[in-house]
Amino acid sequence: MKVLKMCCEKLTLVALVFAAIFSTFAGLSNVSAKQMTTLINAETWVEKPEVVQEAQSLKKKDTNLNKREIPEGWRDQKVLSHTVVRQGPVSLEEAKNWDEYPSTTVVATGYTAGVESTGKTEGDPLYGITFSGVEVKRDLYSTIAADTDVFPIGTIMFIPGYGYGVVADTGSAIQGNKIDLYYETVEDVFDKWGKQEVEVFVVEEGDGHLTDEHIYELNEDEAMQVFRDEKYYAGAS
């Protein structure tokens, strides 16, 4: 009799432990006793299509945090770790770390295609044509003049306050560390630049050649179009 009583007590204790474990699992996973039975049945009697279908739907159930457990304000937030995201376009001067490029200090002046700078009038066949043969241009990439012994034709540089300049021209007064920046009018030369000492950054050294096609490709680069708005690129005209 004692033995029978002890066996019953042990069986009762085992049943209580099993019930506690099952209850804890069900609470954490949101799976009910009926659903658990369905899962077991699906693993054991796979020939019952309706049981398998219900079990598969249960397996897909998210047993982690669901939306109702996530604070309302967090649901639509995107977290970018250790990254500061700026809203809207930035200027050319902010777009790159210019310190990564070779730099030099130059005296920069402005010039036009007109007689006051080149001695040519609009009726001249060579009016607006640079030493390299390309047409003068004020754009995202503008034509500039330099001493080709210092900056060969085709050299691309960034001039803070002006933008990208591509060496396309020369000049008798442009010797050593001097450059001449192209503007469309004399008024722009005086109003927007004048004469300045400035640190320029050499993005690419030229090979002595330049074409209108290359200038066009630089200015029409899709990634550069955001800077066309005069608010966002240096020295906009």
Rank of each mutant, 00 (worst) to 15 (best):
V186C: 05
L4N: 14
W74R: 08
T24D: 10
K48D: 13
L80G: 06
L28R: 15
L218N: 10
S142W: 02
L13P: 00
E220G: 00
T38D: 09
E213S: 13
W74H: 12
L39F: 12
V84W: 08
A236H: 08
S142C: 15
Q175N: 10
L65I: 08
Y183H: 14
P71M: 10
S29R: 08
D169R: 00
M36K: 03
E122N: 02
G128M: 06
L218G: 12
V203E: 13
Y111D: 06
T12A: 15
R68P: 06
E217G: 04
T38M: 05
A234H: 03
V189D: 02
D180H: 03
V189N: 06
I159T: 02
T24V: 14
T121I: 09
D191T: 09
T143R: 04
G133V: 11
G154F: 06
V84P: 01
Y233S: 07
L92R: 01
V51G: 06
K192D: 12
Y101L: 15
S57D: 11
T211N: 11
D212G: 14
D169L: 04
T109G: 09
V85C: 03
Q56K: 15
P160C: 11
W45H: 11
A145F: 01
V202F: 02
E199F: 11
W193L: 05
E54A: 14
A33P: 01
R68W: 11
L11V: 13
T143P: 00
F201D: 00
Q56S: 12
L140K: 02
K192G: 04
A168Y: 01
E199G: 07
Q175G: 04
N177R: 08
S57P: 03
G165E: 02
V134L: 05
M157K: 01
M157N: 01
M1D: 15
L80P: 03
G161L: 07
I153M: 13
T155C: 04
G114L: 05
